[in-house]
Amino acid sequence: MKKVLLIAAVAVFGLSNVNAQEVSFGPKAGVNFATLTGDIEDADLKVGFHIGGAVEIMFNEKMGLQAELLYSLQGAKDSYSSTQTSGGVTYTDKEEAKLNLSYINIPVLFKYYVTNGFSVEAGPQVGILASAKSEYEYTESIEGGGFDETYSESGEEDIKDNISSVDFGLNFGLGYKLDNGLNFGARYNLGLSNVLDVDGTDDKWHNGVIQLSVGFMF
């Protein structure tokens, strides 16, 4: 948390010293479609969310910077299912595993308004790991031939010690802001750091997150 406050303070101090024509700020929130790329198999999109605030500092009518402080739930999931029938008996197995990674993200984006209200944006992001948990759900069922049985189990494990505490990435996105301050955004976060922090392995995992947001600027 001290690292987060320090980075946020440096960002605010730096942005407060630019020659700004207009400053606006407000809340934002939205949905994440997250996964992990690299040396990882069968990593599917996992739905999460992000929530926080943003400040936009315009240098002129076209160009500006936007800094944000967001809580973001990311990670990936893997689903498996199989069904087999033999002798009138159907065997079904279902399993879903999720890697839930929670970050405090601080993106700083350069914004350029192409037309009135419509903008493109790009810039770096630092993320501080808040929590990391692995969970699974397993169900096995047998039906037919006089059988009707279902077995299920689930579990959760804290794996924060195996995940890097800091994540660096780049954001690329589009935005649209109405005259009343209501705004919408679509962004992709390309993770540059290795998420995995396990001794004895050279595997590398990287965050990849699609974000759809709605916010309001005062």
Rank of each mutant, 00 (worst) to 15 (best):
V4D: 02
V4Q: 03
I7M: 12
A8W: 05
V18G: 09
N19W: 13
G26M: 10
G26F: 10
K28P: 03
N32V: 10
A34C: 06
T35A: 15
I40D: 07
A43W: 06
D44G: 14
K46M: 15
V47A: 15
G48V: 11
H50D: 01
E56M: 08
F59W: 00
K62L: 09
Y71R: 02
S72K: 06
S72E: 09
L73W: 06
G75Y: 04
A76Y: 13
T83F: 05
Q84G: 09
Q84M: 10
G88E: 09
Y91N: 07
T92R: 12
D93N: 12
D93H: 12
A97P: 00
K98Y: 13
N100L: 11
L101H: 01
Y103G: 01
I104K: 03
I106M: 14
I106V: 13
V114M: 15
G117C: 09
G117E: 06
S119K: 13
G123H: 05
Q125T: 01
Q125D: 06
L129G: 04
K133W: 09
K133R: 11
S134V: 01
Y136V: 02
Y138S: 07
E149I: 05
S152V: 01
G155V: 07
E156P: 02
D158T: 04
I159F: 00
I163A: 08
V166W: 03
F168P: 00
N171Y: 14
L174D: 06
Y176A: 05
Y176P: 01
K177I: 07
D179N: 14
N180Q: 10
N189M: 14
L190E: 04
L190D: 00
T201W: 11
D202N: 15
K204C: 10
V209C: 10
S213V: 06
F216Q: 05
